[in-house]
Design a protein around this nucleic acid. Structure first.
Lengths: 146, 146
DNA sequence: GTTGGTGCAAATAGTTTGCACAGTT
DNA sequence: AACTGTGCAAACTATTTGCACCAAC
């Protein structure tokens, strides 16, 4: 996700209005590397903008996703999570506490991975998600659920 | 997914009963490389076993997943898909027609990928999913939806 | 003033569960 | 006979939509 000022420009160029609700959500996401769900973003937004609705949060997240400013993660089968970091990186999902941890993908280039498959299969690949699923350090010790 | 005979043994060893419904679902999955959803498996099962319920299909899929005989794919945000092929391979998901295509991961070893992250982060990784999302050949030509 | 956004409430859809009866062992 | 599985119906949860009013442009 880029600077708020750049996002404002992009909104205006796309004929979208710059509203206080949208700006609040952008500010929240800018500082949040916890991969929150829509519900979590909504709860945080309420503290800034007490009358904001879940619908507005939901639609704003869709808008930001469609503009390519955030990525929607489908790593948790129960709900979508959102990541303002659109750079190449993999994610780890803990089955127990449902937390998501960033993993740097130094070892290989995700783009070239996508390109090689693209060449072979004649597919138009828009994005790649690499997901590791298991137990985080805390949950591994305290919980044996698989 | 292994031979039905091996799965029967595994069921009995786990104290699970071998029922006609479960066997029908195993036979359906054995030959199905289309990555069906629970609903699709249910509809196919109905043609073999007209009184089977969605609940039974759903619970059997969970059982097979928990036994490690199939993998549950969370590549489609709208529903889970199931894959009887538990070998290392990536998947492509078409946003338009919702089809899933297998991609062989010759270029790198998924296990070593997981292991390198594991060593670095102290996580217990149970499985890895590599997802490419975009448009398949057919939908790319006929549809410009992103 | 025009156009798109917000917020409410309701609808949708996939998933999951409680329970009584049936089938496997 | 004991115990798990099946099937029905209902509950649950995340997501999505219709619409009237409001705000940005």
């Amino acid at each position: 996700m880029r600077d708020i000022s750049q996002i404002i420009t992009k909104f205006r160029e796309a004929g979208l209005k710059v509203t206080p609700q949208r700006m609040s959500i952008c500010h929240l996401l800018e500082d949040d590397h916890s991969h929150p769900s829509a519900e979590e973003i909504y709860r945080k937004a309420l503290t800034i903008h007490p009358s904001i609705s879940f619908t507005t949060v939901y639609k704003t997240l869709q808008t930001l996703r469609d503009l390519g400013e955030i990525q929607e993660l489908n790593i948790d089968p129960e709900r979508a999570h959102y990541d303002p970091d659109i750079r190449d990186h993999a994610h780890f999902f803990c089955k127990t506490c449902r937390s998501i941890i960033d993993l740097e993908t130094d070892g290989f280039r995700r783009d070239s991975l996508a390109r090689s498959f693209h060449d072979a299969e004649d597919l138009e690949i828009h994005h790649v998600q690499i997901h590791m699923v298991g137990l985080c350090e805390k949950c591994r010790d305290g919980d044996t659920a698989s």
